[in-house]
């Protein structure tokens, strides 16, 4: 089973967050008010932001260790990420969006994997649609399929439901639940919505502005 250990200080101009927690299997919610530093923590785990101090370790891979000067590239961390706004490539089809993330040089095989994933998230018929014309819920499903395409060890979910209407939110929640269980991966879910925590979280890391205060579960 994959384990993730996070003990970092992440700083951006005007804001610092100290985060310390570990995660093992299932869905761990990072919960707290907006602006408490949850997404910054996620960015440090994703490797798009360098921590100011501390370590991030996933199994025997050191993602970041400021004392040793280690900073693994995002590309090498084997992560999947879903953002609040899907961040899809609107100029490519949903199928291409997912296929690009498959770690497979053979294009035909990558498309096969991507097709299976899109069918799994219920978008089998929208595969070649114009990405721009998809609804918000459909876009997040494509983003979820894309995040899983690289067979990640950790799925990072940054407020993935907050821009959805209630119906798509429910179906997206159960989709995340079943995919995480199927694949036996870790998911970190950043949310300020208590319902997300009740509905999904196996473990909870609670944030106050600027730091983590407790981990339970």
């Amino acid at each position: 089973m994959t384990t993730l250990g996070v003990d970092v200080r992440v700083a951006v101009p005007g804001f610092v967050v100290e985060a310390s927690f570990s995660a093992r299997g299932g869905i761990t919610a990072l919960s707290g008010p907006s602006g408490s530093g949850k997404s910054l923590t996620l960015a440090a785990i994703a490797g798009t932001l360098r921590p100011a101090r501390g370590t991030i370790v996933c199994d025997d891979n050191i993602f970041a260790d400021t004392t040793a000067g280690v900073h693994m590239r995002s590309q090498d961390r084997r992560l999947g990420m879903v953002y609040q706004h899907a961040a899809l490539l609107d100029h490519r089809s949903p199928l291409d969006n997912v296929a690009l993330a498959v770690r497979q040089a053979n294009v035909a095989m990558a498309k096969e994997t991507a097709t299976a994933l899109l069918e799994r998230v219920g978008l089998g018929r929208a595969m070649s649609a114009k990405t721009r014309s998809l609804s918000g819920g459909e876009r997040q499903r494509v983003a979820l399929a894309r995040a899983l395409a690289g067979e990640p060890r950790i799925l990072l979910l940054d407020e993935p439901f907050s821009s959805l209407d209630a119906a798509s939110r429910d179906s997206m929640r159960s989709l995340v639940r079943s995919l995480v269980d199927e694949r036996g991966i870790i998911a970190l879910l950043v949310t300020h919505d208590a319902q997300d925590v009740t509905a999904l979280a196996d473990h909870v890391v609670v944030y106050e502005p600027g730091r983590t205060v407790s981990a339970s579960g």
Binding site: A46, Q75, G80, M81, Y83, A87, L89, L100, R103, A149
Partner: peptide, 19 residues
């Protein structure tokens, strides 16, 4: 964010630029 998403999903810098 779209470029970041591409990096996180494993695309090399060259492919991020091209795709």
């Amino acid at each position: 964010r779209v470029e970041e998403a591409a990096r996180v999903m494993g695309l090399s810098e060259f492919r991020v630029a091209r795709v």
